[in-house]
């Protein structure tokens, strides 16, 4: 059954999109990630214009992060104070990102920058995840504990000024790295169409030393607001949010996530991380391949933004 997407301006198959939403939802439920970094490339491979894919994906992440965050609120595993400071940084980063997005789009370099960012981020994070999980598996084989705890360790970040107390996270920490991290994630959210959980979660654990139990809830809490802000900004500045596309993906995504979460409970942490790392590297290679292989047509058209915007 084909349906016409009013903003992407093309006809697509509803079931293919629904299956994509459910598939990515399954993986995100299983691995506990947002899935934006998988969905945006998939949409681009499915010939949705990158500008529409990125903006629409931000809208979808609002839904998935909201339903995830609700569960964490019930369990009381959200540090609202920490989340709010991350959020302030996130809004700043997202505003900056939208401006960069518009400028790149009119310069004709948006697709290229999106691809390069994906290749760089997915490549480095995928590699790190595989190395880390393989090491963990080796330790398990050697009979040691899989999780390495680093209690009370401090790094240079803990020497910065403007310290604040975060009760829920049991941290006394400078606001600067929190704001900077929030900003970086907000920037990625608007340019790459991701929630940024895959950067936020490791950074909170390894750099800020936030206790693992509040990391996911707090990260989801701030992702809701940053992606909601990004959705409104993309709609206003670029008119690239397609709600019909977003709704199909949302419904597929939330259903898939339920089954994924159930499947994830039956697997071991380090195995999950190794699998996710492989998946991330796979997407990275696919995007990188498209960058270096000679395109079928060297020429491309784009209609004037300035004119269409004023009509």
């Amino acid at each position: 059954m084909s349906i016409y997407l009013p903003i992407a301006e093309l006809s697509v198959n509803v079931f293919v999109l629904f299956a994509m939403g459910a598939g990515v939802g399954f993986l995100s439920g299983m691995f506990g990630v947002g899935g934006g970094f998988l969905m945006t490339p998939l949409l681009i491979f499915y010939s949705i214009p990158p500008a529409v894919a990125v903006a629409t994906e931000a809208n979808q992440i609002v839904a998935s992060s909201f339903s995830g965050a609700l569960a964490h609120f019930r369990k009381g595993t959200v540090d609202i104070k920490l989340g709010t400071i991350l959020l302030v940084g996130g809004i700043l980063g997202s505003s900056l990102g939208i401006a960069i997005f518009s400028a790149l789009r009119s310069a004709g370099q948006l697709d290229l920058i999106i691809s390069i960012l994906y290749v760089v981020f997915l490549g480095s994070i995928g590699t790190l995840m595989i190395i880390e999980s393989v090491n963990a598996m080796r330790r398990v084989r050697a009979g040691a504990r899989a999780e390495v705890r680093r209690p009370g360790q401090h790094n240079w970040i803990h020497g910065l000024p403007f310290k604040m107390r975060f009760r829920k996270s049991k941290l006394y920490l400078s606001a600067i790295p929190v704001l900077v991290l929030g900003m970086l994630v907000g920037l990625l959210a608007s340019i790459m169409g991701v929630g940024g959980g895959f950067i936020m979660v490791p950074a909170m654990i390894y750099l800020l030393r936030v206790p693992t139990n509040v990391v996911i809830g707090t990260s989801l809490f701030q992702i809701i607001f940053v992606t909601a802000f990004t959705t409104v900004m993309q709609s206003t500045a670029n008119q690239t949010v397609d709600v019909v596309l977003a709704l199909i993906l949302m419904v597929g995504g939330v259903i898939g996530a339920q089954f994924g979460a159930a499947a994830g409970h039956r697997m071991r942490g380090e195995q999950l991380r190794a699998l996710l790392g492989l998946l991330v590297l796979g997407v990275c290679l696919r995007m990188g391949f498209d960058l270096v292989v000679a395109p079928e047509d060297l020429f491309s058209l784009s209609t004037s933004l300035s004119e269409t915007a004023h009509r």
């Binding site: 909201f66 909601a228 959705t231 409104v232 993309q234 206003t236 977003a246």
Partner: peptide, 21 residues
């Protein structure tokens, strides 16, 4: 009405997420 549209898209997403949960 692109601003209103963006706000509506967010509300739609919140509703979907809430329903799912």
């Amino acid at each position: 009405r692109s601003f209103l549209y963006g706000v509506m898209a967010v509300i739609l997403a919140i509703m979907t997420g809430w329903l799912a949960s």
